[in-house]
């Protein structure tokens, strides 16, 4: 959890209107349309460079840093020669843009020396993991864009203030 409270624990504990999940940074989505830190993994979906209808599901486990990359039909990625493929590297790079290097390294529990690339600091081996869960989370993510808007008030959103501008 990120502590964004101005005056420490008491303020954090007694406020109702807080932004607990810090907003993510905008990034280009064409290559890696989906990245998330969830279920104990950095996971996401990487568009294939050669086939517009194909995507790869890539994931790196927090702690062990074991990784996997396969198509959404569970066919292993051809680029995994005992080390992370280009899809995994793209996933890490985009996660760093989206969440910031600190949040990603904290989540994965990895020490990144000053000036080093996060992707180079991961140990871990190839460990097959089911792609279906991640892929269905991606589809669910996309499905939000199909939920119709509403002009009825949602008072509950007062608990979720937009924040952001600095300067």
């Amino acid at each position: 959890m990120t502590d964004r409270s101005p005056n420490g624990a008491t303020v954090w504990a007694r406020h109702s209107r807080l932004r607990v999940v810090p907003p993510v940074q905008p990034r280009k989505l064409a290559k890696v349309p989906f990245v998330e830190l969830a279920d104990g993994r950095l996971q996401g979906v990487v568009s294939s460079g050669s086939d517009i209808g194909r995507v790869y599901v890539s994931s790196i486990a927090a702690g062990t840093h074991d990784y996997n990359c396969s198509t959404n039909n569970n066919r292993p990625c051809g680029g995994l020669y005992g080390s992370p493929c280009k899809h995994l590297r793209a996933l890490v790079a985009e996660a760093v843009v989206q969440y910031g290097a600190d949040r990603v390294s904290r989540y994965l529990r990895v020490e990144v020396p000053e000036g080093a690339d996060l992707a180079d600091c991961l140990g871990g081996v190839h460990e097959p993991a089911p792609a279906a869960v991640v892929f269905s989370r991606f589809l669910r993510h996309l499905a939000y864009l199909e939920v119709p808007d509403t002009t009825l008030p949602i008072p509950e959103l007062h608990w979720f203030p937009a924040t952001g501008t600095v300067g």
Binding site: M1, D3, S5, G8, A9, W12, A13, R14, H15, S16, R17, L18, V20, V21, L37, A38, W159
Partner: peptide, 21 residues
């Protein structure tokens, strides 16, 4: 929020009133 805060057991500060709300 709960997902982003996991594991919560060791988190230092919790938005106590907010989550109860």
């Amino acid at each position: 929020e709960l997902r982003a805060s996991c594991p919560i057991g060791s988190a230092e500060h919790l938005p106590v009133r907010r989550w109860a709300d």
